[in-house]
Write a protein that binds this DNA or RNA. Structure first.
Lengths: 217, 217
DNA sequence: TGTACATCAGTGAACGCGCGTTCACTGATGTAC
DNA sequence: TGTACATCAGTGAACGCGCGTTCACTGATGTAC
């Protein structure tokens, strides 16, 4: 009579206590890893540093990740996911000949760097040692680069000459933003550290002038 | 009768065969290290990678250096020495309101990065793991920064407003130059890689406009 | 609903690999007389 | 100048530490009937 065999009923409840516990531990390990990465850097971090920070046994780690690399991959998956939704939410003005539009983008980039500093630093470090992560960086840069190209179109359309090939200009802006952010965000207490607004305004001005500035003769 | 005791005579000849051999091996290890660092990165390099590349036995390494760190220090000593002589040789025009003067400086920086790429990359990597090397970077940056301040004086004197506090502007330029150089010099065969002149002109324009550019209204 | 067994998340001591570092040895160079 | 001994640069096998990874075990949760 029962159309649904008993062993299937209630299978829809994904949140069985065991899964909840496993998911909790996995998240605890990821959170702990972010903290430890931020404190001592990815390359300096031992598996046991992460498990200790998370308050779990060393062996527990391997129930969830095959190693430090896979844990980082998992953090990056979250990061890429957020990047996608952020780009999807394109209500903004794409015309880079407008300083306010440019500033909005720089601010987005700056806050993205700040929010994901642990992962991004870890990624940079991992890339030093592993071709896989070097490619991950390339992916991030490529996505951003494609995006910026469309914005620079407006500059070209306005007849303003760029200071170099678009790809190189974009690479330079990217280097500037990420480098400057990682320089100052990693040690917020450093003497002379800029406020968020100072940093964003400075970067905006540099990029805006770089794009559209006319040097005096 | 002998005014100079026999065991002292000819001591002035520093180039006794033994010392020559020792110095040769030490240099061979340093050269090998530069090559290996460039190929696989400092952090990825094992002592035995260096000795193998140099064609010496593993144990030989410790006749000359206490470890990989001391070898890097020794490379950096050479680098700082060159930096000093380069600055001493100041025949150049210090007025950054003059594009040609700025370009000369950018070219100096670019070629310095290129010439010392192995050490500079190694230093960056070592700094990830060791506070000592973080300080070495700070020294390098501070020296350069002091130098740039004097150049920006000319801009201030000309009544041109900078896009932010001088320290931050200098930090941004520094980040841009070193980041862009390390991005493109590490893989010269990369698609879209700029020639030296393209890179130097782009950086010069960006910095020049950043300093002195007037965005259109 | 109750009982007996299976599965699973987590534990931490132990194992073993990779690599830095040591050290007894060799042959060549330097020194004493 | 010749001889006997000391010193030194270099060698590479062996040792041992640190850390990643495993695995037998525990107690709790899930399943069968």
């Amino acid at each position: 009579m029962a159309l649904i065999p008993s062993h299937v009923k209630e299978v829809g409840a994904v949140t069985t206590p065991r899964k909840v516990q496993a998911a909790g531990t996995e998240q605890a390990l990821k959170d702990a890893a972010r903290r430890v990465f931020a404190r001592q850097g990815y390359l300096n971090t031992k598996i046991t540093d992460i498990t200790r920070e998370a308050g779990r046994a060393a062996g527990s780690f391997y129930n969830h990740f095959s190693g430090k690399e896979e844990l980082l991959e998992s953090l990056l998956t979250d990061l890429f996911a957020e990047g996608d939704t952020a780009v999807a939410d394109e209500e903004h003005n794409p015309d880079f000949t407008d300083r306010a539009a440019l500033r909005w983008h720089v601010a987005m980039g700056w806050h993205f760097q700040r929010r994901h500093l642990p992962e991004l630093l870890a990624l940079r470090q991992a890339a030093l040692v592993s071709p896989t992560f070097r490619n991950r960086i390339r992916e991030l840069v490529a996505a951003d680069s494609a995006h910026l190209h469309s914005h620079l179109e407006y500059v070209r359309a306005a007849g303003i000459p760029l200071p170099g090939k678009p790809d190189l200009v974009i690479s330079a802006f990217n280097t500037l933003l990420t480098g400057f952010a990682q320089e100052w965000l990693t040690d917020p207490g450093a003497p002379g550290a800029p406020t968020d607004d100072e940093a964003i305004d400075l970067l905006t001005d540099l990029i805006y002038r770089g794009i559209a500035g006319r040097p005096p003769v």
